[in-house]
Write a protein that binds this DNA or RNA. Structure first.
Lengths: 170, 170
DNA sequence: TAAGATTGATCCGTCAATCTTC
DNA sequence: GAAGATTGACGGATCAATCTTA
């Protein structure tokens, strides 16, 4: 794992502020839920010998077509050097290729090669199914509700300014 | 960041199964929400020159007292080697010390030193407040609701067997 | 044989500095 | 000067192999 999960029990020594206490419990639940599902995702991806970042790039190019490296960076939230590195590796595997940008010679596109397209077309549905299995305990309705709440939570937290790794601060 | 976030828009090419589609949207929302809050947490910790893992160990020892390394491993969900490494670093900083286990000579305890106790006692409330700020958009009630749903989600996903990095499969 | 801890190799990604083009 | 991409050094964690004790 790449991330340590916060400890679950703060009840031993309750905090003065009940509001903080509720927030902490939510944070723990959020982190644990994320890690549980991420475990499924990572496990599935490892069988394809693919890192989460690599899969993220392939998936994005699959669903959106060729993209500038900077766009990829903002969308999957990796560092600038990280994108270069990911695209390098995918290119070495023959799954992705760089293309020059006609309107701006500083920029480059990344695009799927036929081999990359074939691969992601095959594994994406399997990966999606694995996620669905992980989440399978919840009804479709509560999945929708939860997704809505989480989206609100995420956007709120982002506006309050976390670290903002060069991401659009809209 | 240590983790790439799944891409948000699959609407361009809807999946056959609507159930899978709902699951995917939930997964994206979950990952984005987690990363947004984690950014706050990481940002805060970095000012203390402390990794999330190090903070996790200190926090746990603070709230639970001396713990076997194996227990720490299971609770913060890091690898076996990871715990050894974390405790090494904290010990080098003088914040934590190892203690022999009288009943099993294979095992060792980790415990806070006075300096470690002093440090975590000081920074934990600040960290908690930062998390509370990140989550501040939500009412206390909806924080509780969300936490409950997420706990259910996380436990469900875990039971369905993610990767289970040596963790108790209870 | 198995369980706990440790070591060393390796992997993935960040960060700071740099180069090019705008 | 600022924006896009790239490079190289580094950090944090995983993994497989090993050592010790049960």
């Amino acid at each position: 794992m790449s991330q340590s999960t916060p400890d679950a029990a703060h009840e031993a020594e309750p905090l003065g502020d009940p509001n903080t206490h509720a927030a902490l419990r939510l944070w723990v639940a959020l982190a644990r839920a994320f890690e549980s599902v991420a475990d499924h995702a990572r496990d599935d991806l490892r069988k394809q010998r693919m890192s989460p970042g690599e899969f993220g790039v392939l998936e994005m190019l699959y669903h959106r077509g060729p993209l500038l490296l900077g766009e990829i960076q903002r969308r999957i939230l990796v560092s600038s050097g990280g994108v270069t590195f990911l695209v390098d590796r995918l290119a070495a595997k023959g799954l992705v290729e760089r293309q020059d940008c006609p309107s701006d010679r500083r920029a480059r596109y990344a695009a799927l090669t036929p081999a990359g397209e074939k691969l992601i077309r095959r594994i994406f549905p399997l990966h999606a199914a694995r996620i669905a299995t992980a989440l399978g305990g919840l009804s479709e309705a509560s999945q929708r509700d939860l997704a809505r709440s989480l989206k609100e939570l995420g956007e709120g937290a982002q506006q309050r300014g976390g670290k903002s790794r060069g991401r659009k601060r809209r």
